[in-house]
């Protein structure tokens, strides 16, 4: 058995092919092999959500998915979603509402928030709190994040 596996995938729209150790998880792959350091590592056991990455359109925990599982797939990280402008309204709301402090949870939180707003155009504050309850933030106390997601939802629906 080869010590390495070949992973060929599309990352933020670019074709990428790398030889990695089979045990390499997706977040280590994007951070250390591809130098996309916007995805963070917080617990490495699937609890904190800092490593949230989009794989084939769904958000996943980058620490619980192997890089090899992304072979042939489509990977999107905070860098790609920022450059494409897809989540610029969420980012604007987070900036205006000071919904990130140290920034560790922020990329994962934005991806989770974006996923929520795709699934539910008009979430209540309770629904927002439930949806982001797998993303740990030590700084904000979460209220600013809930406010920013709510603001974005209202804007997307044409409100002020």
């Amino acid at each position: 058995m080869s010590k390495f596996v070949q992973v060929t995938t599309t990352v933020n729209g670019e074709n990428v092919s790398r030889s990695v150790e089979p045990r390499t998880n997706l977040v280590d792959f994007v951070r250390y092999d591809l130098e996309l350091t916007g995805s963070h590592v917080g617990c490495e056991h699937g609890v904190c959500g800092a490593c949230t990455i989009r794989l084939n359109g769904e958000i996943v925990r980058g620490c619980l998915v192997l890089a090899a599982q992304a072979d042939g797939g489509v990977v999107e990280t905070i860098e790609g979603l920022s450059e494409s402008g897809k989540i610029s309204d969420l980012q604007d709301s987070f900036l205006t509402r000071n919904a990130g402090q140290c920034g560790s949870c922020t990329p994962g939180m934005l991806l989770t928030a974006d996923s929520l707003l795709e699934e539910n155009k008009a979430p209540t504050r309770t629904e927002i709190r439930e949806y982001i309850s797998g993303n740990y933030c030590r700084c904000t106390g979460f209220e600013a994040i809930v406010d920013a997601i709510e603001m974005t939802s209202k804007k997307r629906r044409g409100g002020s």
């Binding site: 951070r31 250390y32 130098e35 996309l36 350091t37 916007g38 995805s39 963070h40 590592v41 990280t77 905070i78 860098e79 920022s82 980012q91 987070f94 900036l95 205006t96 000071n98 990130g100 140290c102 920034g103 560790s104 922020t106 990329p107 934005l110």
Partner: peptide, 23 residues
């Protein structure tokens, strides 16, 4: 005045530079 934090935009785009990002 609640001026937005100048360094937050960078963090929101995954452009932070934490010690583990140093190579």
């Amino acid at each position: 005045r609640s001026v937005p934090r100048p360094n937050l935009s960078r963090l929101l785009k995954g452009r932070g530079s934490y010690a583990d990002d140093v190579k």
